[in-house]
Amino acid sequence: MGAFTILAIAAAAATASATNLFVSDYSGSVTSFSLTARNGTYNLTQTFKSEACAPNPSWLTIDANRGLLFCLNEGLTSPNGSLSSFTINANGSLNHIKNTTTISGPVNGVIYGAAAGQRAIALAHYTGSAVSSWLLNGGGKFSFNQDLPYTLPHPGPVPARQDAPHEHEALLDPTGQYILVPDLGADLVRVFGYDEATLKLKTLSPLVAASGSGPRHARFWNPYGVSCDGCPTYMYLVAELASTVTGYAVTYLPNGGGLNFTEIYKSTTYDLLNLPEGNAPAEIQVSPDNRFLLISNRNNTSFSLPTPSGALAPSDSISTFRIQEDGTLVFVQLWPSGGLFPRQFSIDSTGSLIAVGNQNSQNMAILLRDVATGLIGEPVARVPLGGNTTCVVWDE
């Protein structure tokens, strides 16, 4: 057993026992799994399944402090999407609270507003070319707040993917006062403030990304790992169509006027000397220790992994970069994701386990990760889903 494996198992074994995860897939299911670990052996057991977010669950937003899970149905086979809510039980089972129709294509959502006051959830709608907002009324109940639809005067440089605005994610800046929405179709990152009383979004000046790059997901970072006045702040933007990650130094404009972005770094998301044609990065995360940036790569089949039968199956990859104090990145590792099309992944709170939703392999893979070096190891557990996997979150 290598040094990496020993370190990773030691870090993970104490925390992995009886940990719940929630996984969504396009068959219509939200499934609960229990991850257990004993003597370095990991096991995933299905404990609950709900069809209340059908037909095409695309994203899960967990509000762990309040024991709530919100599920977005993309509505691939229907004219509209939907938003559903659940309360979470200690054993990982879910109680469905509410479902309501939305603009089509919700694929991502983020909760915003004062922690002890009125809050809302903002949704990014890919096919619906819109951002919407829903007030959270406690106990999983919610009500409509706002729709913001968008149009394009003409297709973008990649007409097949940039025929319309395609909002792909909604995320908060570190201070919680701004919501950012990467728009793959318009080559923008839209920026919003919001009214503290109504939580209605207010449009501010966007970040204009490289033409034809297709912004998908982003993450913020600063050297201290906490929000603070005057801290240097950076944002890393993954562009799906260009297969790039771009780092920006972020400054705050006065009087809630928005954000200013200055490009400081840019590279591919892959092995810099060998970028496969068609590589399509998807998810991006900062490790819990604030030292590494991880990005999933789809459609590259760079690796082969053994299956339970002993045969080899292709796998896409996850890239790891070390974040430098000045916000630049140093490439560390390219490693198999445990399947094809890793659409999304989540890192547990210890940083020692990564749960990957491999969309086209229709599985969830659990990867070990060495928190000291940032290196990822082989899958220690994989479980099939009923359809294309879209999202996985830890209940922590």
Rank of each mutant, 00 (worst) to 15 (best):
R382D: 05
P206F: 15
P149R: 04
G214Q: 03
N363G: 13
I323H: 07
T151E: 15
N43K: 11
I97V: 13
S78Q: 11
S27K: 01
S84M: 02
Q177A: 11
L152I: 11
P336K: 01
T102I: 13
V131E: 00
A313P: 00
Y265K: 00
A186G: 12
W335D: 06
L293K: 00
T251G: 13
D25F: 07
T47I: 13
T389R: 00
C231L: 11
V30G: 03
Q162E: 10
Q359A: 04
I9K: 12
D289H: 11
W134P: 03
Q344V: 07
N297Q: 07
F70H: 07
L272G: 04
L273R: 03
W394N: 06
F33G: 04
R119T: 13
L123Q: 14
G247Q: 00
E283W: 05
A130K: 02
F341K: 05
T328C: 05
S346A: 13
I347G: 00
I295C: 03
M235K: 00
L148Y: 05
D289A: 06
V158D: 04
T350M: 04
D229R: 12
L188Q: 11
P384I: 00
S50T: 13
I376W: 00
T373A: 01
A13W: 05
N108Y: 14
N39P: 05
A90Y: 04
V245Y: 01
A11C: 11
S24N: 12
L340C: 12
G212I: 12
F4W: 06
L172V: 11
Y270L: 14
G40R: 12
T31F: 04
S227V: 12
P232V: 08
G386E: 09
S349M: 09
T47F: 09
Q118A: 13
H166Q: 05
S287N: 03
S287K: 10
S205R: 13
W394H: 03
T246P: 09
V332H: 01
P215W: 05
T61V: 15
V30E: 02
P159G: 09
P379A: 09
K98I: 06
N279V: 09
T77C: 15
A64L: 09
G212N: 08
A64F: 13
A124E: 01
L188I: 15
R298S: 01
A124W: 03
S132Q: 03
L204G: 03
L340D: 00
T31L: 13
G230P: 06
C391R: 00
G2H: 11
G2C: 09
L367Q: 02
A13N: 08
S267F: 10
T36E: 03
G256T: 11
T47E: 06
F142C: 04
G139D: 05
Y42I: 01
S243T: 15
S133Y: 08
N89D: 05
L69T: 02
A122T: 05
S296I: 07
V250H: 00
F345W: 03
G138L: 09
Y252L: 10
V191P: 01
K141D: 10
A311C: 02
D289C: 08
P79Y: 09
S205N: 15
S17Q: 08
D25Q: 07
Q118I: 14
F22A: 00
P281M: 07
I9T: 14
P174Q: 07
P276H: 02
T87V: 12
P281R: 01
P308C: 15
C391P: 10
G105H: 03
C71V: 14
Y178N: 03
Q324D: 10
R38F: 11
L329M: 06
A37C: 12
I62V: 15
V226E: 10
